[in-house]
Amino acid sequence: MNWIIRPARWLYALFYTYVGVSWFSYRLFGTSWPEHKETPAAKALTTALTDSGIVDPLIASVCLVGGACLFFRRTAPLGIAILAPLVTGIFIFHAFLNQNLGWGAFHLGYLLVLAWCHRSAFRSLWSHGRPRGD
């Protein structure tokens, strides 16, 4: 099973690392940035967030750091935790604003599968020991 999980994790890591690197390359060196079809509501939101000047570098940084963490088994749970809020936002954006449920569901489903495969690393978040008596 590990021979399936590792390449799947690397592909997900490669995608998010690429997104982060390509955004910084676009801003620093003027490389091309793809235009996507968006509904008017989605376009209004992305324009407002881009114009703020804060959200795009934050998203690119999260993609870069989370993707880089996913390359290594030891830091994969950290990468999953870093990417979880962003991927949830991507799902909500595509489901409700861009009417492209498939793309958002794919990203969220992929992350949930990775989280399930690394569930033992998250066990301490959900289980608490008994308090020690004095």
Rank of each mutant, 00 (worst) to 15 (best):
W126C: 13
M1I: 09
W33I: 02
H36N: 09
I5V: 12
N2C: 04
A42Y: 08
H94I: 02
A8V: 06
V87M: 08
L125R: 06
F72E: 00
L70Q: 07
A105T: 02
T17Y: 10
S52Q: 12
E38G: 10
V21Y: 13
G89C: 06
G133E: 14
R6T: 00
W116F: 14
W10F: 10
G133I: 15
Y110D: 00
L101A: 04
L112I: 00
R73Y: 09
S124C: 10
A8Q: 04
A13Y: 04
T46R: 12
V55L: 14
K43M: 13
F93K: 05
L125K: 03
A60Q: 02
A105E: 01
G129T: 11
Y18F: 13
A84S: 14
L70G: 09
E35C: 02
F72I: 00
T50M: 07
I5N: 01
W3C: 03
F29C: 14
R119L: 07
H107L: 02
I59G: 10
L49C: 01
F93L: 09
G133T: 14
P85T: 05
T39S: 12
D51T: 03
P34I: 03
L97M: 05
H118M: 03
W103A: 03
L108S: 00
S61V: 08
N100W: 03
I5D: 00
W116Q: 11
H94M: 07
G104L: 06
T75M: 09
L86D: 03
R119E: 03
S61Y: 15
G104F: 04
V62M: 15
C117H: 06
R123Y: 12
I54Q: 14
D134S: 13
S25Q: 14
D56V: 10
L114N: 05
V55A: 14
L49N: 01
V19H: 12
I90D: 10
L58P: 05
F106P: 02
P57Y: 15
L78Y: 00
